[in-house]
Design a protein around this nucleic acid. Structure first.
Length: 411
DNA sequence: ATGTCC
């Protein structure tokens, strides 16, 4: 990476017997053997086009590897998209400066927590859903409703999911809302969420249908989770419609939350300010039709972000680390993609066993965020070093802004 | 990540 030639050919290539090659942007970052084996499984599918690209945050997932880009010809693997359809990031720059923020950030964090439902349903009362759906959410739902009703005619179980009452809500796990400062002291708001319960139901249902289809047709798959629909087959068109709809839901979900976060901030910050001076809203878990190497292909980015030339993206660090607003370089070899974060180095269970609350408090010093034992699985040390991850993808993106969080709300 | 009726 120290000279021009290496920057142009920054990736490593692995040949897969009986499959397409794997191109890996993982110079200087650890890759588990299990993740390599999983990438090789996908590379052996007959529908994969040209090669598979692995981003520097690559790690083991279900079926397909998180941090991979899988281009397929006239077919889609629903389990590669996964259940958190349209999961992604949104960031908005404001006219606020660091010095405009109050010394005590706890009221700002509380205001955000009150404005956006978050967390997981513990029984009858669901703090992660709307008690009463706000008017702005109702208006947004009206855009989604007609296509959803059509889907429900063919797949009635989708009607029973949380949809309208989860639009504009955060969810749980690694979904979060942050207030950040960039390298010039400008205040940004940033958040991470997806298509919530309804996207999950769509993903789960079609993954199961693909597996059943594969069994019926005796498909010779290296892993049942890599079952795919081919163009023209029974569920292909329905899946394309449903996954596209869930992706729209997810993008709108983030936009609605961002608006409410800004409104909440205006109630506790005295200075008047404007938002969306620069704004990015990007999926990192999705599929869409794109043109690469002269072919129309379905590109599944599972934990990867689109990085076409000039396109803005977001690469978040973990709780205590920096995040990046990046501009794509349109590298065709990565199918114009980059990483979606730092990537885990250990499972959630291992992190909870290995780290203490004292470790976590030290790692998140100066950040107004949760410091209890239930967020130990999200502690920065459970993730790869973000500097190494960024260095490994210099030929995919350039860094425009470096963001450091000062407030973090976890689901 | 989600929801808890296989």
């Amino acid at each position: 990476m120290n000279n021009k030639q290496e920057q142009q050919e920054n990736h490593l290539q692995e040949e897969v017997p009986g499959g397409v090659p794997i191109k890996m942007w993982t110079r200087g970052v650890p890759v588990e053997d299990a993740a390599r084996r999983q990438l090789a499984n996908a590379a052996r599918l007959p529908i994969v086009f040209k090669h598979i690209a692995a981003m520097p945050d690559v790690h083991l997932g279900i079926g397909a590897t998180v941090g991979s880009v899988i281009p397929t010809l006239r077919a889609i693997i629903p389990a590669a998209v996964g259940v958190d359809i349209g999961c992604g990031m949104m960031a908005a720059k404001t006219t606020l400066r660091a010095e405009d923020l109050p010394d005590n950030l706890a009221p700002l964090r509380s205001a955000i927590e009150r404005a956006v439902p978050h967390g997981r349903a513990p029984g009858a009362r669901d703090p992660g859903a709307w008690g009463k759906v706000p008017g702005s959410v109702d208006t947004a739902w009206a855009q989604l409703e007609p296509e959803f009703s059509e889907l429900c005619r063919d797949y009635p179980k989708l009607a029973k999911t949380n949809h309208r009452n989860h639009l504009g809500t955060l969810g749980s796990g690694n979904h979060f809302i942050e207030v950040c400062l960039d390298e010039d002291g400008a205040v940004w708001f940033m958040l991470h969420s997806g298509s919530r319960g309804v996207g999950n139901a769509i993903g789960t249902m079609f993954i199961e249908l693909a597996k059943q289809d594969a069994l019926r047709h005796n498909a010779n798959l290296p892993d049942r989770d890599l079952a795919y629909f081919e163009e023209g087959a029974r569920y292909f068109g329905d899946y394309v419609r449903a996954v596209g709809w869930a992706q729209k839901f997810a993008a709108l979900n983030r936009e609605l939350m961002m608006r409410r976060v800004i409104e909440a901030a205006k109630t506790v910050i005295r200075k008047n300010f404007q938002s969306h001076i620069e704004a990015v809203n990007c999926h990192h878990n999705y599929v869409q039709k794109e043109r690469h190497f002269g072919e129309e292909v379905y590109v599944t980015r599972k934990g990867a972000v689109s990085a076409k030339a000039g396109q803005l993206g977001i690469i978040p660090g973990s709780m205590g680390a920096r995040s990046y607003i990046v501009r794509g370089k349109g590298n065709p070899e990565s199918f114009e993609s980059c990483s979606h974060g730092a990537g885990r180095v250990m499972s959630r269970g291992d992190a909870k066993r290995q780290f203490t609350l004292a470790d976590h408090r030290a790692a998140t010093e100066g950040v107004e965020c949760r410091k209890d034992k239930d967020v130990l699985d999200e502690t920065p040390a459970a993730y790869k070093d973000i500097d190494a991850v960024m260095a490994a993808q210099q030929d995919l993106v350039e860094v425009l802004h470096t963001l450091k969080q000062v407030v973090c709300v976890k689901g």
